[in-house]
């Protein structure tokens, strides 16, 4: 297996993704199978090939740097799970 349950724990931490202990073994197996699938890329000669990030590489547009949106704070905050005085609420960060 390419990835161990401990590796999964570490990646999950990087992604801030809660994973139950009981699921770690299964995920390690699944992700290892996925890595097996992509392993054949390593055998390809890509020397000098420019990475393709995007199909629209050359044609990205720039817009004029002017304000186009009006203030819609209340509307845009409406879906937030916790608000106070127009701010998003999070647990205390600074002790």
């Amino acid at each position: 297996m390419l990835l161990t349950p401990d590796d999964i724990k570490q990646i999950a931490h990087l992604a801030r993704l809660g994973i139950e202990e009981a699921a770690l073994d299964h995920l390690a197996a699944d992700l290892s199978t996925m890595l097996d699938l992509v392993e054949q890329l390593q055998a390809v000669d890509t020397e000098g090939v420019e990475p393709m990030a995007h199909p629209a590489n050359a044609s990205l547009l720039m817009r004029d740097d002017i304000v186009t949106e009006s203030d819609q704070r209340d509307v845009l905050q409406a879906p937030a799970p916790a608000l106070q005085d127009g701010y998003f609420l999070v647990p205390r960060v600074i002790e």
Binding site: V38, L41, Q42, V44, T46, V49, E50, P51, M52, A53, P55
Partner: peptide, 14 residues
Amino acid sequence: AYYKKAQQVRQLVS
């Protein structure tokens, strides 16, 4: 090893 390589292969496919 993974992301950049995959993007290079993407160019070959294209």
